[in-house]
Design a binder for these strands. Sequence first.
DNA 1: TCATTAAATTGTT
DNA 2: AACAATTTAATGA
Length: 236
Amino acid sequence: MPRDFTDWERSCAWLRGLTEHERERVMDDLQVQDVAPGDMVCRRGARARHWVGVLDGLVKIASVSISGKSLTYTGVAPGGWFGEGTLLKHEHWRYDVIVLRKGRIGLLPAETFFWLLDRSLEFNRIIVNQLNERLGQFIGQLQIDRLSSADERVAHTVAAMFHPVLYPGVDRRLRISQEELGYLCGLSRQRVNRALRHLGGLGLLQLRYGGIEVPDLDALRQYESSAEITEQKVAG
DNA sequence: TCATTAAATTGTT
DNA sequence: AACAATTTAATGA
């Protein structure tokens, strides 16, 4: 495994806040796995042994409801890390994590995770910050699920993937196909295509081959909330 | 480096 | 779900 810090800067932005010594241990302990679409990174019910990061590719966090329907909570883009909440509570995974796009997964052993937590104030800040952002993301997800059109769902899903704190590896362009986006928001590829073109026409995003660019994240987020308020007025 | 081919993605029906 | 058009990636001279 390469010791070169710059190699990991994109996919492990949180390394930046650590000391040289801490970084060395992380890179020694970190396990890297090549994954292909359909692979399960985490299974619901299994014990959480690692803090998990998407180094490259794309995964979705989902669970299967009692009725058998698959509910996707969110997609995780390169640079995104998850599982800290589950690790902290010494719980089992409450969701499945499925690979959508071929890539690489980083597994940081729980032991190393807690070692960092015990000694690094900066790591604690990073984790608290991430938990906080994640909470906000899930609350937003609840509102979207309840009342929203397909266009809003797509806008929300795209905006969520551009989250600078949760997915620092995503800069200006997000690598995701329209089919993959469909899996994430529970819509057909055709409907996603329609929604994306609509949003593109409004100037909220730009379509690229195999990806999306968002020039103004706030504007895209505003689209969700403004559409929501409109519906509430109609309902009231 | 360039041309050809295969694969992936998009836009439409 | 199927189709053609387009873009990218891979291959080899």
